[in-house]
Amino acid sequence: MTATLPVKPELVCPAGTPAALRTAVDAGAENVYCGYQNATNARNFAGLNFTPDEMAQGIRYAHDRGAKVLITLNTFPPAGRVDLWTEMADLSARLGADACIVADIAVADHIRRRHPQMRIHLSVQAAASSPEAIAWYVREFDVKRVVLPRIMTVSEIKGLVDEIPCEVETFIFGNHGLMVEGRCSLTAYVTGQSTNMDGACSPAACVAYDQQEDGRLATRLGGVMIDRFAPHETAGYPTICKGRYLSEARDGGYYAFEEPVSLNAATMLPELIRAGVHAFKIEGRQRSRAYVRKVVAAFREAVDTVMAGDEPKLADLVALTEGQKHTEGALKSKTWR
């Protein structure tokens, strides 16, 4: 198995706070991705993310230890507001960030013209999954890496790697969105805030939990009940896509879009590495540093073990997964659900 192994993939790890960034670096991340405290990033949650000073310190901490910092500018500026995104791109260049993760072509164009030395990684939010689309981004903006949507099988990824002129990054752990990324308007429909333009899917200010007398837990978003968990049932995030709904066509509530479940591609690491994937992404900037430490350390060991030609001993990460359930998702089969 080792004779034909390609280059060792980098681990791309989440950080919602400076403490999480340091934790990710210390746990073995080659790349840490993080964003500013505004709508330019897709985890624009209350109390999360970095001030410019914190970002500067985080970049220094990572660089001193041989790690890179990728800055998420991965939302879409509404008309007339692109200045905020370009200002954050300029700031990132001044701070010495190693790359910007970009979804919008105006932002990509600005970086390419003003900061030609800055690497551009194409965000999963751009939902580029065909060789033609990715080649266009590479040609027009010199994109160095594409983060693939979570809708592709390993064999599709392998075919893509052989056809496109840039690095490929795939998600291996964390939140598992069924929809084509960057095009989901479910939160906006209920809360008026856009995941893709405001950066907040199910903003906490719109979420309410009701622990009921009978032990059930009711979850509401914008006043709309989206699930009610039985007393002994594991819970999920309060997102519309993971909601359970009543329908005349079904008995009881059912998950119309997606069940509360996390992606966990741990068992597929050897296949993904053989497919030529350049970087593995762990989702979870909204999670704690305990999550970052456990997940990064587990995948650090697993990747190193595979690269050494051995079978990885995979830590049990199920306790950290949404609904305490995990899936290999579309990586294994298009009919996974």
């Binding site: 209350a46 979420v207 939990y209 002994h232 999670r287 999550y291 306790a319 950290l320």
Partner: peptide
């Protein structure tokens, strides 16, 4: 810093009521 709050929420070992934000 040994446990993740979301994980405790998923397992129903942590209950949050009131102002979620």
């Amino acid at each position: 810093a040994e446990q993740d709050g979301d994980a405790l929420f998923f397992s129903r070992d942590l209950i949050v009521t009131g102002d979620t934000e």
